[in-house]
């Protein structure tokens, strides 16, 4: 009890955070790929990163670090970058002789999926998920680097033992 009181854990804040975090992340996903057309990857990634900031605010930075470690950050950053650059490279490979980076119409998927527009939109969504992943991981990494203190681990461990 005393440890919880010491670090400002509050049942109201925790319940509200538990309620709001899934909706914030859903809204971020909607911003990223809900609308038809390019754009929104950066904003959606920032909204999803803000949900992680809310988690850290409600549950403490040590628990947030435990649930979203730095290795995941690096993995998300690199995966997003590879999604973006990979689609671009795929377009370079398929637009034979012309070498047009991110020319979605060059990828021969229309036989499988259908119209060229839907195919281009799908690939634009993949690119936007890549952008959003990279922005989200970079922002969360920045936030942890700014807010992390070495003594916070010892403090919280010491408080739990009391």
């Amino acid at each position: 009890m005393s440890a919880e009181k010491k670090y400002g854990r509050d049942v109201v804040i925790e319940t509200i955070a538990r309620l709001m975090i899934p909706f914030i992340q859903l809204y971020g996903l909607y911003v990223m790929m809900g609308t038809e057309g390019a754009g929104g990857g950066f904003q959606g990634g920032t909204v999803i990163a803000a949900s992680f900031v809310l988690y850290v605010t409600a549950f403490g930075i040590t628990r947030g670090r435990k649930n979203f470690p730095e290795s995941w950050n690096v993995a998300f950053k690199c995966l997003g970058l590879y999604l973006y650059a990979g689609i671009g490279l795929l377009c370079i490979i398929f637009s034979l002789g012309v070498a047009e980076y991110l020319n979605y119409a060059a990828v021969p998927l229309s036989n499988i999926i259908g119209h060229a527009d839907t195919r281009a939109l799908m690939i634009a969504d993949v690119v936007e998920i890549g952008i959003g992943m990279t922005v989200m991981a970079a922002f969360v990494s920045l936030f942890f680097d700014l807010a992390w203190k070495e003594e916070s681990v010892e403090e919280e461990e010491g408080g739990a033992e009391e």
Partner: peptide, 25 residues
């Protein structure tokens, strides 16, 4: 609307959280 939404997400949300995190040190 697009610029306004970006301003709300980056300016009011992200930058404030980053500056509070920097202020804690």
């Amino acid at each position: 609307v697009d610029v306004g939404f970006t301003e709300a997400a980056i300016g009011a949300g992200a930058t404030t959280a980053l500056m509070v995190a920097a202020l804690s040190r």
